[in-house]
């Protein structure tokens, strides 16, 4: 479900479709008691960036009516506004989807995927990815602090330079992920992971009424959206 909605979100860019999708995602999140509010407040800080994107889109794409103009250069147009809004909605959908995913414990996700006959190596990978996201955020935050302590004044920098500073966060992040992945693969193999092709499992997950409804609703809305736009 989460995957379906997020892929639709990437595939379509009309604001109306996105708005509908956003509504669906929010409803699901509420149903499963995900920490939406927390996710949203975190997003608030990004609003400035989105506003900037709206302006940039307006300046560089023609079309639509000009809303704000200075010296013949369109600063804000309806197209730009529309695109800006699409970006916000899209990211909203992805963020909320992610918070839905994180309500299930990783063990359940592995089990669920395995019961769908997906090889357990793969489902294990998904679970590990979900488990490590918060850790990655923490690491990136520390690196950002370290950058600033060495005299990088992000608040006074122009966008281009700021972005190139943010790009520096990637190196430690990727290096950290790689070394962790290496250690983990050694440690799981030593505990007998992949020694046999199938794994027996003590846990068994059942589809509840809520899950059936959800799958059905998702299928329905995917079909509806596809018909509506194609």
């Amino acid at each position: 479900m989460v995957l379906a909605v997020s892929s639709l979100a990437v595939a379509f860019d009309e604001p109306l479709v996105l708005l509908t999708l956003a509504a669906i995602t929010l409803a699901t999140a509420a149903l499963f008691g995900a920490g939406v509010i927390g996710a949203l407040t975190r997003m608030r800080r990004l609003l400035g960036v989105f506003a900037a994107m709206g302006v940039i889109q307006s300046v560089f794409t023609r079309g639509g009516q000009a809303l704000v103009e200075i010296g013949g250069i369109t600063l804000l147009s309806t197209t730009g506004l529309e695109r800006g809004a699409s970006i916000i909605l899209r990211i909203l959908i992805i963020v909320v989807s992610a918070s839905i995913m994180s309500t299930s414990n990783p063990r359940d996700i592995v089990q669920g995927l395995s019961q769908w006959k997906i090889p357990y190596e793969l489902s294990f990978m998904v679970a590990v990815a979900i488990r490590f996201l918060p850790l990655l955020r923490e690491e990136a935050e520390d690196t950002l602090v370290a950058l600033q302590l060495r005299g990088v004044r992000l608040e006074q920098m122009r966008l281009g330079r700021k972005l190139s500073m943010y790009r520096r966060l990637l190196t430690p992040l990727i290096a950290g992920v790689l070394s962790r992945a290496e250690n983990m693969s050694i440690s799981v193999e030593m505990r007998g992971f992949r020694a046999f092709r199938c794994r027996t499992s003590h846990r068994h997950l059942k589809f509840g009424a809520r899950d059936y409804t959800l799958v059905f609703a998702t299928a329905l809305s995917v079909v509806a959206v596809l018909f509506w736009r194609l």
């Binding site: 520390d142 370290a146 302590l149 060495r150 966060l169 430690p172 290096a175 950290g176």
Partner: peptide, 23 residues
Amino acid sequence: SLGRIGERVGYLFQDPGRQLFTS
């Protein structure tokens, strides 16, 4: 701001890998 603090205070992180970011 963190930038101003950095001029006066040197901070060594518990995990030094997190404060290295160049090539």
